[in-house]
Nucleic acid binder design. Structure first.
Lengths: 343, 343
DNA sequence: TTGTACGCGTTATCAT
DNA sequence: ATGATAACGCGTACAA
């Protein structure tokens, strides 16, 4: 087994000092060409690579960034992660991922674990529980230590830091308007429990759109479903009892399940009922009918978050600049597919 | 801003030596209760936490594991990752994820980047390009350095290390038999280009099943599609020209797209054509008809991989044990849904 | 041109 | 009971 070689080994072997080796490998002017050749040849031969940990300790920079997401299996978070990873990698950073599993405690534990030197900064989306509890002390501690933090998608006003979001309310408004323009009058909303910030914003946009177009907001047309649910009984009841000609869903799973239900109940999609969802994942693309949906452009979000973070990480600390936080809004795009009719 | 506090700060502040502080915080017997109380109180007050990097340097253990996957957006890899992350986290490890993007070069770069001290071991699935080129020197180098490596799903016989796979050929065989048992005689196979090891194995299983049941293997019923393709022309041609009553697909996307095409061409699914896919993702669950599919149990794979890796990482180095590599086979399960008829 | 010494933060060993 | 020293691997200011 060829163990990793260090400067010390090379120095001992070549009978020079460690610092000579170090300088020689950096092609320093102070070292004679002879020595440099000798050292470099030896280093190449034994495939010397500096030890990242030692460099991290010395520079107080790990070149790692920590990403904490509620769930990695969700398509949206996955695409954001891909954006982060791509940009970070291009900049020479590695990404440590922790999954909070929507749990406050896990979020806190993961943050503390990483905050003790493992990473140069955080990118995260808050867990559902954190948002519900409205407890952000773990974030505050981290930022107070001077560790850069970028929040995306699930953010909070309580913390001063860079943020990357989509304009959820505007996106929902546009999606609703899309339905209105195609002649729909009784538009339902399928949403989650409202402790998710984003759901609340999407609901607001939905209401705004209706009001702006002189349509009544009918509370009975708003169906609130658990974040993860198995059986369809409450949706089924809704379908039976309510009268509607379109549905805005806050995610693609809700949408696809609803479409399926509608079809089973003999409604034609999109003629009898049109559907618009959020999240442009595989489901939207490949279900039939395919789903008109709001593309959140996760990859762009991820890239923007990584850009913001790395620029902060690499900035010389400066009280003024550091407080100059920005919130980037990533544009959404409504992708037209088969679940809506053209106006 | 409250900067991170170190042993040195505490020592200076309390006017004791660094080693006294270190011992006091570890509740060492050699330190007087007085001093311990004093030090511990101070540490708690200023929220002292040891610096991970320094500990890593000292222990030559990072408590990080490196995961390299071809693509994080794929549902299967995502679930495997979740299994890894869960187990690793429970064991106090963090996970650094790199995406090779199916590229040999990126795989190599990422490995080298992490191999220089950033991680204690690797878990990875080979990129398509790596499998095509049959070049595994980067893996060999890592293992020769004594860094534990676990391969999953996309593995190779060229490298001696722990592996976690599903029995792809057996799973394909069982899936095919499921179709045969329900009376299907002309069973097509939709697969990818064969440089993907797993596709090759699934094809083998498909052939075995047919032969075992006395059915002819008709080469014209095997459709090879690019890994990622946009337009459906070749599938369409296949549907028009070939006569078949069932299709085995090597992934769920192929399956769902094929089902859709079949329906558009007026075939009833599952009555006229039955479908079985691989990967139990959202698509399989929520498409209509929902897809009968081989569940690869990614989370179990991930957990097994993490178990194997961490046990090796934490094992005292011992020539005998280290060479005692195992290959774990994760059982698959055929999930019956609507795209097949009951026998 | 080369080498010595120090520091990054921690721990373990040895001395006082 | 406490402290000094060395070591992990590297880089660099300074001395020779």
């Amino acid at each position: 087994m060829k163990r990793k070689i260090t400067l010390k080994h090379i120095a001992r072997e070549l009978d020079v000092s460690i610092s000579t080796v170090s300088k020689a490998l950096k092609n320093s002017e102070e070292i004679s060409q002879d020595t440099k050749d000798k050292v470099q040849a030896f280093a190449r031969l034994y495939n010397y690579k500096p030890n990242n940990i030692a460099i991290s300790l010395k520079n107080k920079r790990t070149k790692n960034i920590g990403v904490i997401v509620p769930d990695i299996v969700h398509h949206f978070f996955t695409t954001v992660f891909r954006g982060i990873e791509k940009y970070a990698n291009a900049k020479g950073y590695n990404v440590i991922v922790c999954v909070s599993d929507e749990s406050f405690d896990k979020e806190v534990i993961n943050m503390e674990m990483l905050a003790n030197g493992s990473i140069d900064g955080f990118i995260m989306a808050l867990s559902a529980e954190t948002q519900r509890r409205n407890d952000f002390n773990h974030l505050r501690e981290v930022t107070e230590q001077g560790i850069p933090l970028v929040l995306f998608d699930r953010v909070t006003d309580e913390i001063r830091c860079d943020k990357v979001i989509i304009d959820d309310s505007r996106a929902a408004m546009e999606a609703t308007e899309r339905l209105i323009r195609s002649g729909r009058k009784r538009i339902a909303l399928f949403t989650t429990e409202t402790y998710l910030n984003v759901s609340a914003k999407r609901e607001a946009g939905y209401r705004q759109a209706l009001e702006a177009h002189g349509l009544p907001v009918l509370e009975e047309l708003i169906l609130r479903l658990p974040y993860q649910f198995e059986e369809e009984s409450s949706s089924l009841r809704f379908f039976r009892e309510q009268d509607f000609d379109a549905v805005l869903c806050v995610n693609e799973i809700f949408a696809v399940r609803a479409i399926r239900l509608a079809q089973q109940l003999g409604r034609r999609v999109p003629q009898d009922v049109s559907f618009v969802g959020f999240t442009d994942g595989l489901l939207s693309r490949y279900s039939s009918p395919s789903l008109t949906t709001v593309d959140q452009q996760g990859e762009l979000m991820g890239q923007a978050a990584a850009e913001l973070l790395i620029s902060k990480v690499e900035m010389e600390y400066d009280e003024n600049d550091a407080r100059n936080y920005q919130t980037r809004i990533i544009p959404t795009a409504l992708i037209e597919r088969e679940s809506t009719v053209l106006s």
